[in-house]
Simulated assay, not measured.
Amino acid sequence: MTTKLPGRQVAIAVVVAFPLYWMGLGAFKPAGEIESDRPRPWTLSPSPDSFRRVFGQQEFGRYFVSSLVVAGSVVIVSTLIAFLAATAVTRFRFRFRLTLSIMFLVARMVPVEALSIPLFFQMRDFGLLNTLGSLILPRIAFSLPFAIRMLRGFVKGVPEALEEAAYIDGAGRSRFLRQILFPLVLPGLVATSVFSFISARNDFLFAKSFIISDTSQSTLPMALLVFFKPADPDRGGVMAASTVMTIPGLVFFVLVLRRLVSGLGGAVKD
């Protein structure tokens, strides 16, 4: 039995996918076509020259590795902290628990731009300017409120009777967290990790604010500035670099797609 997608969903999918198509098309267009006054949504003479310029950049590989380090660190640390914090807020009874939960929501309402200058001085006082730590720490902090709020529903969905049965069978708290609760809330962990990965990998504001002069610590979003010159912008290079930046996110998304769907379903139920 086959199911037909409604025309509305197809239209939305086309609108969402068109920027990606245009980016990939621009990466393969020759210079004459991409700079033409009459752009066309196709090309009859694709060229890999833009990708050659991107990979020909001496520092591009280092940018790529730095982005993976930042995104991977943010995902692992924020997911672990969010899991423990969501468990504490959901399972334990303590003073100011409701206040703490409200603070998680309030923290998400603060514009990131409003904190860039205070964070700059804080990173300077910590001696982390021009290091990847100045990107990792703020991104962990900004990922936690959303991750904790999202994981609360998954932890709450695990019956307390299961926890009591584990304790009766001799399992300690750490064993219960590691062997029982963690596998049960894994779809939620995957869903939150995807959002953390995307926000950390696409970070441009903090990279521009905190990494000032040390190009060896730059990330992929900063690499776009190499090709974007106000006087003579390399549009093909920008498109090709953006395409390369998109690939790790797509690969990560495809690998966790099944658990991501179930995780988002659990978040909606919360």
Rank of each mutant, 00 (worst) to 15 (best):
P230E: 13
L184T: 10
Q122L: 15
I211G: 07
A161V: 13
I247G: 10
V110E: 07
Y21R: 08
T3F: 14
F204C: 03
G266R: 02
D49M: 05
F197T: 07
G133Y: 12
I136H: 02
R108Y: 09
L132K: 06
V54W: 11
M245Y: 06
L44S: 15
L205V: 15
S209I: 14
S216C: 03
V226F: 13
V226L: 12
W42K: 03
F195M: 14
A231V: 10
F55I: 03
V54N: 10
E33H: 04
I136A: 03
N202M: 05
A13R: 01
A240E: 09
N202P: 00
P6H: 08
A191D: 06
F253P: 04
L129P: 00
G172N: 03
V238H: 08
L260R: 03
R235W: 15
G249I: 09
A161C: 03
R175N: 02
T192M: 00
R235V: 13
V256C: 08
S199W: 11
T219W: 00
P48M: 14
L260I: 02
P111G: 08
N130Q: 10
L115V: 14
Y63W: 14
I198F: 10
V74A: 07
R40G: 01
S218K: 10
S143C: 11
L162D: 03
S196P: 09
S143D: 02
R201H: 13
R175H: 11
A147N: 12
G263V: 05
F197L: 15
G249K: 01
E164V: 02
V106R: 00
T99Q: 12
L128V: 02
P248E: 00
M239I: 00
E35C: 01
R173Y: 11
V16G: 04
V251Y: 04
G127T: 07
R108M: 15
T90G: 06
L84Q: 11
A114C: 07
I81G: 08
F204R: 02
P46H: 15
A191F: 04
D169I: 00
M245E: 12
D232L: 12
V77C: 05
V75Y: 04
P46K: 15
S209F: 08
F104T: 11
A82R: 04
F253I: 08
A82S: 15
I136G: 04
T219E: 02
L132A: 11
Q179W: 14
F120I: 05
S36D: 14
A86D: 07
R259S: 10
R149T: 14
A165I: 03
L100A: 15
R149E: 06
S174K: 00
A71G: 12
R258Y: 03
R38N: 13
D203H: 09
A161H: 01
S199M: 12
L264E: 05
A223H: 02
R175Q: 12
F92K: 13
A147D: 01
V238F: 08
A11R: 05
G188D: 06
T87C: 04
V244Q: 10
L255W: 05
